[in-house]
Design a protein around this nucleic acid. Sequence first.
RNA 1: GCCCGGGUGGCGAAAUCGGCAGACGCGGCGGAUUCAAAAUCCGUUGUCUUUACAGACGUGCGGGUUCGACUCCCGCCCCGGGCACCA
Length: 829
Amino acid sequence: MSSNYDVQTVEAKWQKRWRDEGFYQVDPDDPRKKSYVLCMYPYPSGPAHQGHVRNYTFGDLLVRFRTMHGEAVLSPIGFDSFGLPAENAAIKTGEHPRSFTEARIKELTESLQRLGASYDWRRVIKSHDPNYIKWNQFIFIHFLKAGLAYRDKAPVNWCPGCQTVLANEQVLADGTCERSGDIVERKNLFQWFFRITNYAEDLLNSIEDLDWPERVKVMQRHWIGRSEGAEFELKVACTSDISLKVYTTRPDTSFGMTYAVIAPEHPLVETLTKPDFSKDVLSLLERASRSSDIERQSTEGALEKRGAFTGSYAINPFNGKEIPIYVADYVLMSYGTGAIMAVPAEDERDYAFAQIHNLPIIRTTEPPDADFEGPYSGDGLKINSDWLDGMDTKTAKAKSIQWLESNGIGKGKVNYRLRDWLVSRQRYWGCPIPIIHCPSCGEVPVDIEDLPILPPDDVEFLPTGESPLARHDGFVNATCPKCHQSAKRETDTMDTFVDSSWYFFRFCDPFNTEVPFDIETAKLFMPVDQYIGGVEHAILHLLYARFYTRALIDIDLAPKEIREPFKKLFTQGMIRLDGSKMSKSKGNLIAPSKYFDSVGADALRIFHLFVGPPADDMDWTSQTDEVIEGMARFLARVWRLAVPDASDQEISGRPSYIEPVSRELTAADTAIRKLTHATIEKVTSDFNRWSFNTAIACLMDFTNQLTKYQAAGAEKSVMDEAVNTLLLLLAPSAPHLSAEAWERKNGGHVHAQSWPLADPILAKADTVTLIIQVDSKVKDKVEVAPDIAETEAIGIALESAKVQEILGDKEPLRIIARPPRLINIVTQN
RNA sequence: GCCCGGGUGGCGAAAUCGGCAGACGCGGCGGAUUCAAAAUCCGUUGUCUUUACAGACGUGCGGGUUCGACUCCCGCCCCGGGCACCA
């Protein structure tokens, strides 16, 4: 860059000043209008990578932009500092997860500061901080008391070699343990859950009002997966009191039911299996329990449709016919009732199963054409369905539900794909679940006064996969808070998504020692006006945060006005390295620190803003360094305009610097004034619609025009206005250079200035290019007044020499007039 | 398989309401400066035909609507992402 712009010194100077002066600190009593801009807090994996830089550049731009609009912008940062990598590192190297994590936080903090990101650094939250753990556990206990947390049996991945539960990512694709190589089993163990399904309907319905990217909304809707249907009883033949509850979305097809299927984990499997068939059933059960989720749900498995006949029959209540009951792993215990009526003619999966097991197929819906083959799941008129015959699907559905209800067999039922949230993790480096298991009192929450329950430091990290907490006698042995007998402490820790489900509330009131956060203070800042993060959190984090907000309201810990935590969401694109997904080692090659050291933070920020739309993925290629160099060149041009310095201008080849003069405004001067105001308008609206790349392009163009203007001899006041405007408009994007240039030029702090306001009269163009077409092909262009009358525009077009030449004495067939933009003279059809 | 995105110069991209396709930047080419180079600055740069003037073609492919389509409609192809036995 320019000889008298020392990037390193200038950037360090302003970073220190912003921090020391608390420039971006906001307090509850701040008189300015409050707003809240938040980037998803990062997992501290070391120094920032380019993904972080991209994310935090967008966030910082908005914080500074809105601050210049006179708002008190709450802009906090924190660290999602619990999680598996620190624990794995501990197993490998022996370093304690705490010191490991704190070292990574230090590195990441330094990167963020070198980026020039502006935060209220007093408010930093770390998930592993005892203060945060305390309120995490406090909320857990309140959830438990409100019935929102419970303990239940759930199938988990169990490694018989390691004698422990494995996380899904520790199970390899072939269903073996990544550590011991043993075949992972599915075991039912007690786990802690949050009752997110209580809120399924509300979480679903509220999606429509969110100002979020459509695709994220679609993903959440799909994840919640509401379906309407019926639940009813199938009596088991030759028994008096046993019946099977099934769920279907297609009760209208009930007359086509030719068999029933129960999940391998269904409680009635044993009862229904007749001795002659137990061999087949048992081998199926064993296979199902051995196979991992991945295998069981793979596409190849779907073709096989593994299943076994139980020897029992059920009675179809609609026609009284007996149908065989099978056990098959294509039916999941965790959805609906874990049992289905199978209608092979109208369901693909049932059809495939029926084909393999030679079961009858009866159509109950007329397919669109007579020779239709295979299962037809669309709508149509009912056939082979007795009293439903002739009805359309919708009517038949309603009628069959009515029939079930009036005969006391079943009822209409809404089901969700969404399951309760399993929060237990058999891990050390997480927030301990504050529960004591007492032999006489059962599960007892720790007394609030005893919080936080912290994981002990003196533990051993062994590569067994078992949580060190479970092996630590001092931690495990406790006394029951109720009866004071000796008891065992819960050794599961919480899913780290719990930590991130309410941190945005804590940011509002991070020093509170009485409650997780004060409701009134939270009300001042919440909801988050703009939330920014990666799409990878489109479902889980964002859904859990929405659930937590509702749950906290219901237990009177959050303001009831804030139903949705994130008003607006922006999901940025991913960064790819030469087309492939970014890996850690590859990512290091393009480490931000390398660019901070060479071109500086401003150039790297401008690059991320300029390279393309923020929502799009971007490829980091071999050309990228050259583009970044180009950004540094642009900033150098701005610097030379704003801080003209004789010694710097003497570089040969460059046009010599001409001191601006005061004079009556010429046409060229007025044109620059107009350009200045048009630029304010364009950049402001581009920032507001997240079109940062075009805003930067516009500023580059403005800079180029000003450079030419100055070289041609500028007018002083016009040049002054233009350059000051340029620095103000650039201040959110390249904060260091703008601040330094502003200080040298005008004194004071550019980020404390008001955002420039465009004079609408100046910003408006006084001529518009009228496009003159003949048969939709451009033949001529004329500058005209923006308010030109239609007849006048047509007149100009017809008089055009070009048009005359083409038309000759032909009469135009018709003339399309769209003044002041376009006249199209049509001569042929 | 289903549901979303996306496909525009050599490259990243722009075109906000159906009206100049390619703003801005990278790279390339030419020039200035220099003993020379680097750096910097200026000019130029969609493709083809043409000495030129100019003309033709051009937004994944095929159709359609329209005076006019990157933009709207129908049918394909390719790439990326999400979900994936949810009854």
